[in-house]
Amino acid sequence: MTIKFTQDHEYIAVEGASGTVGITAYAQDQLGDIVFIELPVVGKVLKKGDEAAVVESVKAASEIYAPVSGTVTEVNAVLSGEPGLVNQDPAGAGWMFRMSIADAGELDTLMDEAAYQDHIK
């Protein structure tokens, strides 16, 4: 499994032709306590950069953009009852949705862990 990062603080954990998307630890820390998450519907076709979800803290609403193009295959429904999971475990239980990856080539445009850590410095 490889994990890639966007400039906008989404991550995508890639397994074969599918990827799991969420926000980074840095992003959840900047947002503060997350209180609500609007997830996409399964089957939604996304182009890279499309608005896929919205996370709300008490002070801000932030759009989550699709890191790559593809189709939503599964959403983390647990988040609707426990949005705080995104704060507690953004890379694990706080994942947001899974998508099939339409063009694996797009992954090359994203950052790896080291590049992302450099990006948020």
Binding site: G32, D33, K59, S62
Partner: peptide, 12 residues
């Protein structure tokens, strides 16, 4: 994602 950059904390 779009980020909030005003720096307002949310913890009491």
């Amino acid at each position: 994602m779009s980020m909030n950059s005003t720096g307002r904390p949310t913890h009491i």
